[in-house]
Design a protein around this nucleic acid. Sequence first.
RNA 1: GCCCGAGUGGCGGAACAGGUAGACGCACAGGACUUAAAAUCCUGCGAGAUUUAAACCUCGUGCCGGUUCAAGUCCGGCCUCGGGCACCA
Length: 940
Amino acid sequence: MENINEIEKKWRDKWEEEKIYKFNPHASGEKLYCLEMFSYPSGANLHMGHWWNYGVTDSWARLKRMQGYNVFHPMGFDAFGLPAENYAIKTGIHPEKSTQQNIKTMERQLKNIGATYDWDYEIDTSNPEYYKWSQFLFLEFYKKGLAYKKEAPVNWCPSCNTVLANEQVVSGECERCAEVVVRKKMSQWFFKITDYAEELLRDLDNLDWPERTKNLQRNWIGKSKGAYVVFKVDGTDQSFKVFTTRADTLYGATYCVLAPEHDLVDLITTKEQKNEVLEYQKAASIQSEIDRASTAREKTGVFTGSYAVNPISNKKIPIWIADYVLATYGTGAIMAVPAHDQRDFEFAKKFNLEIIPVVQKITGKTRENETTKKSIVAVVYNPKTSKYLTINWGNLGGRLFIGGTIFENETALECAIREIKEETGYINLKFMHQSFPVNHHYYAFNKDKAYNIDCDLVYFELIDETKIDQDLDSEEENNFKVEWASLKTILDEVKDELHKTAFEFREEKAYIGDGIHINSALINGLNEEDAINEITKYLEKKQIGEGAINYKLRDWLVSRQRYWGAPIPIIYCDKCGMVPVPDADLPVLLPKDAEFTPDGESPLKKSKEFMHVKCPVCGEDAKRECDTLDTFVCSSWYFLRYPDASNKKEAFNKDIINKILPVDKYVGGIEHAVMHLLYARFFTKALRDIGYLNFDEPFKSLVHQGIILGSDGEKMSKSRGNTVTPDPIVDEYGADILRNYLMFGFNYIDGGPWTDDGIIAINKFYNKIERLVKSYQDEIKEIPELEKSLHYTIKNVTEDTTNFQFNTAIARIMEYTNILVKYESKGIPKYYIEQLLLILAPFAPHITEELWCETLKNEFSIHNQKYPKYDETKLISTSISIGVQVNGKLRASISITEDMSDEEIKTLATEEDNVKKHLENKEIVKIIIVPKKIVSIVIK
RNA sequence: GCCCGAGUGGCGGAACAGGUAGACGCACAGGACUUAAAAUCCUGCGAGAUUUAAACCUCGUGCCGGUUCAAGUCCGGCCUCGGGCACCA
């Protein structure tokens, strides 16, 4: 289109002037709250991601709007945050100034998209009118005990000079700047999100959210079921609680481990161990999270000198401290069961602690009247050839390792050596280790006997090939071959469950599977589930433990040592202690004169005027809290403010928001899965409980747009130099063309690498439409082909757009357009042109408005028209082409009518030349007719 | 290690509930119009065999197997890539 930029501007001005997108809460039509995640007002122009998120979702909202929904579609800015502050440090320009400038720029840019936002509801989280209410809600939480201050080990980002929430630490690095996070003990503000762990988890089930996002949250909340067990410290009054998911293994707990930060450590460490313990604690405290969390690292730890008492076996067991136990999960202390936990196993091996197996793996099937005996399976490895010694029994039992029955007065090891010698002749063996025994059940056909055997697994390495004669009995003599087998051969050919287990256990490790309990007086013979129940019952009866649930989710750390955020409205008074700022004194304004020097201290602390305050209770001199709120706090409730954005008396009016919320469609990136999206859910639930809201979830339906990558398939970034800016495209082709290209060229959920190729195609498509519109005829005439195609198009475009499948929606419009082209020379009745424009209106708001008003001379505005509806009866075709399969292979296609009987269809299908050919000399077994889909003929 | 998601032409991507794989478009090739080019329009376009040509045939949705008249789609076992969590007791 000529002068596209002018045309687009003309209509945007007109829309604004006529206020056609003004939201009226009282208008008729079902309410529909469509929201895109708001963005940070960066100084630069909009990037492709903004167009992708905002432009495309706007088309969705437009379609709903034309369908008669009363759509609420606001926009605003998440304006607090580090970039503005860092910019201030660099340039000396105050964050407020740069932020306001950026917001101006961005508003202008956003308007160029041509979206349906009602700017009267705009939000700026850095505006005192807004953050006053962020502070108010903080105090509401404080008054309900949902906000508290606590000294705790917290995540510190040395580059951002502030603490971070757990959610903002990504693989041990700062989410924002990728600096390695360190652990610091500090007094900080938290929100009690953990109170809602269970509800946050449970309510996920009923949300119309992408499954993977729900999974991310489930994972993050990390529920696990288990039990608390109390351990007494031997010879003292002290005791400590541990959390375990395997209470059934309590008899196997041979030591305990406390986190180095555990409060009890100082109290129970003996004099002799004091130095070592202190040193270890110090070393642990300066470690980065990455180092500490590495599973690859060798286990370290120190003995405290004290002993605990195993509450069920009453055995004295040593108490150690080790950094593989985390202070922040469970109780910060564990009972160690080295036989059945890999970490404990590694630790016990290294420090020579006792290992007692209490769960025995079962292989084979149990039968009645079993004879018990003891036996071994021996695995011999030849390191020179990397092969294992096996016996190939052929049809009698396949490939096995060496097995045999233990004689009286013989140990498992002796038995293994004897059997290897007898069966294979090898005598120079190095004993490696013996693993936990297995309980094996089998039936011997030759003896007609069932066995229940206790089987020890013994492992050797071959020293050399020295061999003596085998000592075989007559039965064995001709029935097996001794063979060295490779790893692959063993994995392929050893089928026996016991021998497979023997091979699996060749590496020394803990056995974490199910089985029957042994060495466990109360629960011997039980499986894991029953044993856990029994032990939990026992603990509860004796009042030394109880069933319990634990979550990985930690409380949300909300205070930040930065300037550009909402000040935390708390006052510290020597006399009265911690005092909330009275509601009437809100907002606590950010001081203009703060210094931003990033030295780890809160900048607000340096403003004397700010810090100094009179205590609201006693009137004495007091000090303000100098930390600010995490920007995620401000973005956790913005969707509640939008519908009542200019309310000066309250954060939001209950009646208004309970009508417009929850958000019906929320669109934004998946990167917020366990930050914003989790926090917002928490806020909603907390505010519901405080009495403000009557709904449980903020976002009923959620869509994540994929990511538009650079043409190299990598994420767009300045440093990679692969960014594509929208501006030149908008200048050349206009906003509608860019929006449509984004919709058509990618799957919205997937995104993908950018290419320029398709833009010209979309431009051509709209040129074609412009030409078609100009060729309209005033006559009124129904053209059956167009009629059918039109309704098919309406149906598909409506459905696909509703599902965010814009690419296929546009494909269907292209099909309709291609059919219109066929009629171009004959002249197309105006009706079919109008319908085309109406269908297109949500996708190309400017172009369709221009053609609607200027070319067709219709009344302004196309966007106030009703979206076309399809008529099911128009979709019925006189004839349908369906396939004919013979034995599953497509052989022909036939044309049928809706009213044809099955018999007629059969006749038609079998008389098709090519079908006939395939039926020659064959017998028809059956013919399956799937209505309107396919005919399938089965022959013999 | 655990939990997700994805693998379809040269490319972006379609295929709704197991029913004619490759819609729509890009790129490419051929043609029409034109003095010429652009624009536009028409035709072809998964691979292979055969053929003067067409019909037609075989193979084909990461790999191996299974269920079914029929599998991109369902089931079992892998491979590769991407994402999340990760010493969570």
